[in-house]
Amino acid sequence: MLIRSEAPADILPIDSLLKSVFETEAEAELVMRLRENGKRTLSLVACNDDGELVGYMCFSPVMLDGEDHNWQGLAPMAIKSEYQRQGIGLAMIEEAKQTLAELGYPVIVVLGHSDYYPKAGFAPAAPQGIQCPWPVPEEVFMVLEVVPGAMDGKTGMISYSEEFDAL
């Protein structure tokens, strides 16, 4: 399994993957808008030994109470159905955590499955004073500090870029 940054040749396979994994085309459209508007901080793909794209994740900037702290939102993340439950997503998150920390992006937020993301170190955001902009169960909005101390003294409402408004 190879995990690497997205390349231009990956655009159509990513689009196909997102459309096959999610119930609607909203996530595929979101990624296209983020890409077109230069809002992707990091996009990773996972390829099998034959070079087929089987996983994707995208990170884009988020704000905390309107202030930019270089925090990132993970959305969307997708693994081709026949490759799920093999640790690919967790391996991609580990790669992303290291890369984001090296690039000076200290915190990741995610809206996702509460039984999955804690395996990668995410914890519910609300007990840490970080609120989700949407009305969702508290346990599904999570945060991960990839640079120790980056969240110290920081609380408030997360806001995503306007590309997310269409979801």
Rank of each mutant, 00 (worst) to 15 (best):
Q128E: 10
D65M: 01
G129E: 07
E27F: 11
P76R: 14
A26C: 06
K39T: 09
W134Q: 10
I158V: 15
T24C: 10
L30E: 07
T24I: 12
L42A: 04
A9W: 01
I79F: 05
M63R: 00
T41N: 09
G87M: 10
E102L: 12
M57T: 06
S159M: 08
V21F: 12
V109T: 15
A166R: 10
S60T: 13
E67G: 01
K39A: 10
Y105V: 06
M92E: 01
R4V: 11
I130M: 02
A7K: 03
D49W: 02
V45N: 05
V146G: 08
A126F: 01
D165M: 15
E25W: 02
S114F: 04
Y160V: 08
G89E: 09
L103S: 09
D152N: 08
Q72F: 04
G129N: 09
P8G: 13
Y83H: 11
Q86H: 13
T41G: 06
I3Y: 04
G55P: 01
E52T: 15
F122V: 12
S60F: 11
S159Y: 04
H113P: 00
D15P: 01
A28I: 14
S16Q: 11
C132Y: 02
I108C: 10
Y116S: 05
L144M: 08
L74H: 01
M1C: 10
V110Q: 04
E6T: 04
P8D: 15
L100D: 10
G66P: 01
L30I: 09
M157V: 09
G51Y: 11
A75W: 03
P61Q: 14
V143D: 05
L2E: 10
E27D: 12
L42T: 06
C132W: 01
D49E: 15
I11L: 13
M63F: 07
N70G: 05
V62Q: 02
D165C: 14
P76N: 15
L90P: 00
M77C: 06
S20N: 14
W134C: 09
K97V: 14
L74V: 10
F141K: 09
P137R: 01
E139K: 02
I3F: 05
L74C: 07
P61G: 14
A126G: 00
E36M: 05
A96H: 02
S16E: 12
H113Y: 12
V31C: 06
